[in-house]
Each structure stands twice: as C-alpha cells, then as structure tokens.
Write a protein that binds this DNA or RNA. Structure first.
Lengths: 337, 337
DNA sequence: ACAAGCTATGTAACTAGTTACATATGGCGG
DNA sequence: CCGCCATATGTAACTAGTTACATAGCTTGT
C-alpha cells in the first residue's frame, strides 16, 4: 500500500521533498522559471516528471481568485442560431483565455435558475443569459455573487443587466413592413412558443401598430415539422393569406416545404418571409427572404464585454446590433388587387 | 477604506466571527444543516445574508478534489451534427451533476492539444474528444494527468482511449452498397476535408473493396455552398455519374440545391445519398436518403461513461452504435442500362 | 444522584497552492 | 580583503474551505 505507484496524486510538497528544494522553488519553476537557476530547475523538473506531478487547478484558483470560466445559459444547443452564437462566443472567449461552460435551459426559467446556481458552484466568473425574462432567483444569485452577467439576443437599455443584442421587435417590424410594402395585407404569422420566450414575444410586439385585422396567428414549436403543420392549417383557411411571416427561419423552412408539397407556388401564390437567416436559409426552395440576425458579431461582442467586466470590473454598456432584411426569392409584390 | 462595503468578499471566517460561532459551525450550516441547532442556524444565516457570503468554489474543490466539470473538444459548434451531439451530452451530464465546457478546435490537432491543456488548467475531471487522430501532446497530457478521456464519433476497439461511436467506414459502405444495389456504378463521391478528419477518412475507406474504377472523388469544405460547387463540377463531367454519394448531409444539401437549380431531376437523372441525417435532411427537395448517425444516443452514452469513470474509476469499454439507412426520395434504381 | 450517552459546538489540522519577506551565497569594485 | 549588491533559495504565512477529534452541556436510566 505504501508503494508510491498506488499513492494518491503528488503535490507541490512531494515534489519539493524529492528535489530537495523548498515549495517556493517548485512553485517558481512552474510560474517564473527565469528566476530559478538552471541546475535547480533541472532537478525540480525531473522530480515533477518522476512523480507525474500536475498542479491542482483548484489550489491555483483559490490563490488567484480566478477560475477563468464563464457560463452561458441558452434554451438549447440544438438550434443553428444558438449553436452559431455559442461558436462565436467560444472562439472569442478563448482569445481572452476564458473557457465556456454551456448549460441548456429548454426555455424553462426555473431550470435556468437552477443551472445558474450550478455554474456559480463550479466557480463561473461571469454569466451570459438569453433574453430578459428570468426567475427572481437568477437575479438574486447574480446580485448576491456580484457576478458579471449580461443578457443577449435581446436589446433593452433599461434592463437590470447590460443587454447585448438586436431589436427583436424591430426585426419583426422589418419583416412585416417589407410584406406590407409589397402590397400584402392578408398575412399569416407563424411564431414559436410564447411561454418564457421573450424574443418571440418581442417580435410579435413589433408587428403591432399596423392594421392587424387581416393578420392571423399560428403558434408552433420551433421545428421544421411544426412549420409544416402550421402551413397546413394556413392553407386550409377559408380566406387564404397572400403572405406568411415566420418569426423564425426554422418555421419558415417547414412552411416552404409544406407549401411546395401541396404545390402552392412561392412567391407567386404566397410570399414567405422568415427571421434569423440560418446557414440553410439561402438554400431552400425558393431561397428564403429573411431578416438577418448578427449572432456572430453578437457572440464576439458578448465575449469582449464579459471579459472586460471580469478583468477590469468595467460593466459594459448595452449594445444594439442592426438586423437587416435579406431579400431572396420567397417574397414578391402581391399581384391582382 | 475600512468600510465593510468596500472590503473584499466575505469568507467563512468573517461569517463565523459575525455570528459568534466557529468556522466548523458555519460550514455545517452550509453542508449538513440538520446537525445544527435551529437557533444557531438562524444566527449564521443572518450573518451569511448580511455579509453576502458566497462560498468559494475553488476552496470547495480543493477539499473535495472535485471540480464537477468535464471538457469536450469538438471541431466546431456551428454544425448541426456536433451541436446535436453536445446538446445530448450536456443534457445527460447535467443529470450526473456535471457541467460541460466546450472547446472548439477547427479540426486542428495542435489547437486541440492547446485547448486540452486549458481544460486541464481549469480543472476538468474528464475529457471527450472527437475521432482518434490527435497530437502526441494530447495523449501525454491525458496520461500525465491520469485523466478519464473518451474518443467519440468513431469506433475502434484497439484505440488507446475507449471509443464510443459509430462505424464511419460502415456508414460509407452502407451508403455505397445501397447505391450499388440500385444499379448505380458511375458514382461521384463528395467528401469533406481529409486533413485531420479521420471520420471522413474512415468513411472513404468504407468505400474501398468495391470497384472504384467508376467512382470519382470531390473534396469540399463542409458547407452547403461547397456542396453546390462540387455538384457543379460533377455536372460538367463528360461522363456524368448516375449517383452522388455525399459523406455528409451538409454537402448533400448543397448538391441537391445545385442539381435543382440546374434542373437536373433527382432521383430520376441522378440519385443523391448523404450521411448524418440532420434535422433538415427530411425536408430537402427531394427528401434526402441518408445514413442516420445516432448522435443523441452517442451523447447520452458518452455522458454516462465519462461520469462512471470519474465517479467510480470504472474505465468504460468501447461502444459501437449502429448506423442505419434512411431511405427517402433522393435515390432510385438506375433506369436504362 | 450519578454515570452513560447524545447532541451541539469548538479547535486545529488538514486540502494544495502562492508569495512576502528573510537569508545565504557569490561576484565584483574599491 | 572587505563590503555591497544581485541572484537564488528557504521559511512561513497567507488563500478559503472541510473535517477528525475533543469537549461542553443536557437528557435519560437505574
């Protein structure tokens, strides 16, 4: 049992003992090797190798007060818009030598609060959340821990946390106004779930103010299948709309698919517009007109903001990214009266 | 300066002092509250609240020897197959109360080795890598830290690390044999980059053993655009193939798009088959025949395996998941001779 | 009434590093 | 040849928790 092979992991003291130096010297070999004599360094490194010494991350963290980890809470990873956002976020964070812990919430605010606690428990130095609708527990946690936290995918200068995002209402409005400018007035709107999805809610709000008398609304889960289903319902409407506004490209993809399946011509018979501008959206049939959400730039900006906050204590100011209309083949001016 | 408001974060000792109890009691209130008298608990909790005390994750980790973090190294997040895999992984890991740190490598083995070191530096207790091609540094790191590590998206019972994945060569073979069974022999193969992508390599290997005289190969980046481009090249071939085998659905999506754009009938003129079975693949035109990769089950199994390894020291055995052919609309028996 | 036993709490030694400060050694200038 | 200074190293006190063990105080049984 005393066989060193079976002993637990070696620590600094073990290395120091074997190398016949003090713990300080070993620590120096690790952190400021230039201040150690070559000969000593060699002896210490030999001991390190022999004992297979690996410094404990926790012990280092306790001294530096740093974990170099930030947590992101997103509804899901299994959706291109979040995956792309997190990809950009991770890439930039790693430039700041920060690691990204991803926690998914399924859009459930209480799961979010729970997972936020988990992130604090592992020592996350910063938090990134999606949207502005959260449980009070989340805010209490952030306040109690004095945790740098930003809300993304949403813009609201008055929000408790700095928001780094785009104008969801504006994106909805841009899509609607484009359809209106093409002469459409009978418009079906297909949107995602309204429970705890403030982005969808905001996009819907963006549609207000215009004459909604000729608009009908269809709720669907964010999947191609549910987009198909929504299209199906729309097609069976007595008063068939001339345009379909989807608040998410995934839904638009399903809608386009179903319209094609039922041989409804897009954009001749019905125009379709989305919001997101996913990688695949340029390659649907017909290519989808949509509102581009700049998630990559948002990811980079979020990484920079949270990093500066953590390193320099500089709370970032909110940041608004423009969304822009990408006109492709799925929309056209309404013909006839 | 002595104003407590400006003092640094409170620690256990501060709480103990304020509550007039010992540090042990405060620790007990936190970890085994039942063993503390109600009255004491109340006093301690009041002190905790007053001082806004939040226990240090690092200090806990140093004692428990646990960080409850595992790291995953993937080529990219911005691809549905990895995003879906990580989604499944994260979901299951969180059931085991483990958090997931994601690091992307861009398919670069030296970036991977570097980021693996970062993961160790933040105290990751386990590592999940993609495929079996890695820098020696990565293996040394794993060996030196005695780190539980599994390789996924690949199956090889003889590999140094336990592999939890599917048979890439088999997936390629299944796709090819299906095309052959339909009477196709002039087949164009569109594949991703061969540099440091052993999955692609293995899929290609799966095509060997059959008569490759009538097969032509096209390398493309894993994007719809590059799939389009590849299709373009294939269509300009003198001896146009009757089937296109794409080693990834993303490429197949691009190929289908370009074929449609150029008004080549699928599957009448050309059959197209993919590998992956992405969410969107059932909704292309025509719906894509493909080989389903069970990434969700693989994610769950990986989470369970790494968790057991970490908790109980039980090195998992390798695990093979079946891939299966999903026949949809993009393939058909070759007509004429 | 007193010992036994249980509950609640405290003391101090751990976990594994970093680092301020003290000290030893050696080279070089005066 | 001595003192000064720089370089290299050591000592011990930190970081912030957990926990084994000791003990105080109260209840209960005989």
């Amino acid at each position: 049992m005393d066989n060193p092979k079976y002993r637990k992991r070696a620590n600094l003291r073990d290395v120091a003992k074997l190398a016949n130096v003090s713990v300080a010297t070993v620590s120096r070999v690790l952190n400021s090797p230039d201040s150690v004599a070559e000969k000593t360094k060699a002896v210490v490194n030999a001991a390190i190798t022999e004992l297979r010494f690996v410094p404990s991350a926790a012990a280092r963290a306790i001294n530096s007060g740093r974990s170099r980890v930030v947590g992101a809470l997103v509804p899901t990873l299994d959706h291109a818009i979040f995956a792309r956002y997190l990809a950009a976020l991770e890439q930039k964070l790693s430039e700041y030598r920060l690691s990204l812990v991803v926690a998914t919430t399924n859009g459930d605010a209480s799961v979010e609060a729970l997972k936020a606690q988990t992130l604090v428990d592992i020592g996350a130095e910063g938090l990134i959340v999606s949207g502005i609708t959260h449980e009070p527990e989340l805010f209490e946690l952030i306040e109690r821990c004095q945790l740098p936290a930003v809300a993304t995918s949403y813009f609201d200068p008055d929000f408790l946390l700095p928001t780094i995002g785009y104008d969801n209402a504006g994106a909805g409005r841009i899509a609607l106004e484009y359809l209106l400018s093409l002469g459409h007035s009978a418009i079906a709107v297909v949107h995602g779930s309204l429970t705890s999805n403030d982005r969808t809610l905001a996009r819907l709000e963006g549609l207000e103010g215009h004459d909604t008398a000729r608009m009908s609304f269809f709720e669907a889960d964010l999947s191609i299948e549910d987009g198909c289903e929504a299209a199906n319902k729309i097609l069976s409407l007595e008063d068939r709309p001339t345009a379909i506004l989807c608040l998410s490209d995934v839904l638009a993809t399903g809608v386009l698919y179903e319209l094609k399946r039922q041989e409804v011509a897009v954009p001749d018979d019905i125009s379709v517009i989305g919001i997101d501008d996913l990688p695949g959206s340029a390659h649907t049939f017909p290519a989808l007109t949509t509102v581009h959400l700049p998630v990559v730039r948002m990811g980079h900006a979020t990484a920079t903001a949270i990093s500066e906050w953590i390193e320099n204590g500089k709370r970032p100011s909110e940041r608004l990214f423009e969304t822009d209309l990408v006109i492709r083949e799925s929309t056209r001016a309404r013909t006839g009266i």
